[in-house]
Write a protein that binds this DNA or RNA. Structure first.
Length: 288
DNA sequence: GTGTTTGTTATCAA
DNA sequence: CTTGATAACAAACA
C-alpha cells in the first residue's frame, strides 16, 4: 500500500528516467482508469506531449507536460508503475504480480505509456482502485487544494501540528493522522508505527494528549517518514522499487503486521484491533 | 463461502 | 459543525 515514503521513492525514480521523454502513444486497457475522460480523448490529448517535471503531492504523482497540462497518478492500494527500456527492465514501484509473472503487459496492466525513445511505462493495478488523470493547470489546483499539509515540508511546524490536534479534540489519534485533508501522506502502516514509537494508543482521543506527547508525536512523524524514504519504503506485502528490490523499511516495522508477536520493547504480544475500520496494531503495555 | 487487506469518497446517524 | 460507523469500489488470498 503505497503511502508517502513509497510514492516519494517512486517519484524520485521516475524523475531520473522520464524527464524530457516524449509520449508517442498511450494505450488504455481499462477505461475506468482514466475517468472522467474517455480513453480516446485521453490518448489523443497526450500524443506528442513531453514530460517536463515530476513531483509528488500527498500520495499523488504529478507529471508536468510541455503544454502546461498535468498527469496525476494515484496508486491507491495495489497500483504500480513499471518502467521498461527494451532489453533492460527497470521496476520503479508498486506490487509484483500475485502469480510471480514478470512479462509485461500482464492481466493487471491498465494503461501503457509508450515513449518516442522506445521506452515504456506500465501502470498496473490489480484492484483497479488507482487512477490516471489528465488535468489542466486550473484543475490541478482544484484537485490538490483539499489536501492537508505535507509533513516533510517547512510549513509543517510544531505549532501547525498542535493547531491541527486542537482543531479536532474528540477524534482518535489514528483518525486524525489518517485524515488527508489535514496531514497528507500517512497511511495505515506508518500511523501504527508512529503511534508505537511515541508510546500512544492509536485510539487515544487527541484532547487527552499532553504538550510533551504532541511534541514527541510531531518529531516521530518526521523521523519515521524520513527513515522510511531512506530505505525506499515498506514492502509489507508486495511493493517493489527500482530494479525490483523490495522497500527495506519492512525490516524496521515494530507493530504493523506483528499481531501476537512479542513487542520488541517488552515482549507483550502485539494486539490487533479494528479501529475506524482499519487493522490497527499496538502494544497494550508500551502504548497508553 | 467467509473474512481480511486498505485509500478514498459518499452517505447516514447522532 | 463534529464524529463515527458503514458501504462502496475491486480482487486476491487464507
Amino acid at each position: 500500500m503505497p503511502e508517502l515514503p513509497e510514492v516519494e521513492t517512486i517519484t524520485r525514480e521516475l524523475k531520473k528516467v522520464l524527464i524530457l521523454k516524449t509520449i508517442q502513444q498511450v494505450k488504455i486497457k481499462n477505461s475506468k482508469t482514466v475517468h472522467p475522460l474517455k480513453p480516446r480523448s485521453f490518448s489523443l490529448k497526450l500524443q506528442n506531449k513531453s514530460i517536463t517535471d515530476i513531483k509528488r503531492r500527498a500520495k499523488i504523482i504529478i507529471f508536468k507536460l510541455n503544454n502546461d497540462d498535468y498527469i496525476l497518478i494515484h496508486l491507491k492500494m495495489t497500483g504500480q508503475l513499471i518502467y521498461s527500456i527494451p532489453n533492460n527492465l527497470l521496476i520503479t514501484g508498486g506490487h509484483p504480480q500475485p502469480d510471480g509473472e514478470v512479462n509485461l503487459p500482464n492481466k493487471f496492466t491498465r494503461l501503457i505509456f509508450y515513449f518516442t525513445d522506445n521506452s515504456i511505462l506500465y501502470f498496473n493495478d490489480m484492484r483497479k482502485f488507482g487512477w490516471v488523470r489528465l488535468v489542466t493547470k486550473e484543475d490541478l489546483d482544484n484537485s490538490l487544494k483539499k489536501l492537508g499539509i505535507e509533513p516533510l515540508s517547512k510549513e509543517f511546524t510544531f505549532n501547525k501540528f498542535k493547531e491541527i490536534i486542537k482543531k479536532y479534540p474528540k477524534r482518535s489519534l489514528k483518525k486524525l493522522l489518517l485524515d488527508q485533508t489535514q496531514i497528507a501522506g500517512l497511511g495505515n502502516i506508518y500511523v501504527d508505527e508512529i503511534c508505537f514509537l511515541t508510546g500512544l494508543r492509536p485510539d487515544r482521543k487527541t484532547y487527552t494528549l499532553t504538550e510533551t506527547q504532541i511534541k514527541k508525536l510531531y518529531q516521530n512523524i518526521i523521523k519515521i517518514l524520513k527513515l522510511a524514504i531512506k530505505h525506499k519504503g515498506t514492502s509489507s506485502k508486495n511493493y517493489v522499487t527500482t530494479s525490483g528490490q523490495p522497500g527495506n523499511f519492512v525490516h524496521f516495522l515494530k507493530v504493523y503486521g506483528r499481531e501476537k508477536k512479542p513487542c520488541l520493547n517488552c515482549q507483550t504480544p502485539i494486539k490487533k484491533i479494528n479501529h475506524i475500520g482499519r487493522g490497527t496494531h499496538f502494544c497494550s503495555k508500551c502504548q497508553k
